[in-house]
Amino acid sequence: MADYSSLTVVQLKDLLTKRNLSVGGLKNELVQRLIKDDEESKGESEVSP
């Protein structure tokens, strides 16, 4: 898992935009949104054959 907390808000928003996720909120919220997306993506890849 990436260390999103070391990134700037601009970098976080860029990552969120690329994933089609909301870019609104405080830095901590942006980090949590990326972590949640990582976990959901990981779960999907494990279920797929």
Results as ranks from 00 to 15, higher is better:
S5I: 03
G24N: 15
E46Y: 04
L16M: 04
L12I: 09
I35A: 08
E39C: 12
V47Q: 12
V10K: 14
E39V: 11
E44C: 13
K27H: 06
E40K: 14
L7W: 10
L30Y: 03
I35Y: 05
K27L: 01
E44W: 08
V23K: 07
L7I: 02
L34I: 03
T17D: 07
V47L: 12
E44D: 09
L12Q: 04
A2M: 15
V9M: 13
V10E: 15
T17G: 10
V9L: 13
N28Q: 15
L7Q: 07
Q11Y: 04
E39H: 08
L34Q: 02
Q32D: 05
G25S: 01
L34M: 07
G43Y: 13
K13H: 06
V47P: 14
L26K: 11
L7H: 05
K36T: 11
D37N: 14
R19G: 02
E46L: 07
D38V: 05
V23I: 13
K42G: 10
L34E: 01
Y4S: 02
S45K: 10
Q11S: 05
S41E: 09
E46V: 12
D3L: 08
D3Y: 14
Q11K: 08
V31S: 04
S48W: 10
V23Y: 03
N28D: 07
V23F: 10
D3R: 09
L15G: 01
S5V: 06
A2C: 14
Q11T: 05
L30I: 03
M1N: 02
S48F: 06
S41M: 06
P49Q: 15
D37S: 14
K36S: 11
E44Q: 13
V10H: 15
K36E: 14
E40A: 13
S6C: 15
I35N: 08
L16H: 00
M1K: 14
S5M: 07
V23W: 08
E40Y: 08
T8H: 05
L30S: 04
L15S: 03
E39L: 12
S41W: 06
A2S: 15
K13E: 11
E29Y: 00
E46W: 07
V10W: 06
L16K: 02
Q32R: 11
K36R: 12
L34G: 03
D14G: 11
D38I: 08
S41D: 09
T17E: 14
K18G: 07
P49C: 15
R19S: 02
L15E: 09
S6Y: 07
L21I: 01
I35D: 03
S5P: 06
L16F: 00
E29V: 07
L15Q: 09
D37L: 03
E39T: 10
S6W: 03
G24E: 15
D14R: 09
Q11A: 07
K13A: 04
S48I: 07
K18A: 12
L26S: 13
E29S: 06
K27V: 02
Q32H: 04
L16W: 00
S5C: 10
K42C: 06
G25R: 01
K36Y: 03
R33Q: 00
G43F: 15
E29D: 14
Q32P: 04
G43M: 12
D14Q: 14
I35T: 12
N20C: 12
S48M: 07
D37T: 04
S45P: 15
Y4H: 02
V9S: 07
S22L: 07
L26R: 14
G43E: 14
S22Y: 05
S45G: 12
V10L: 11
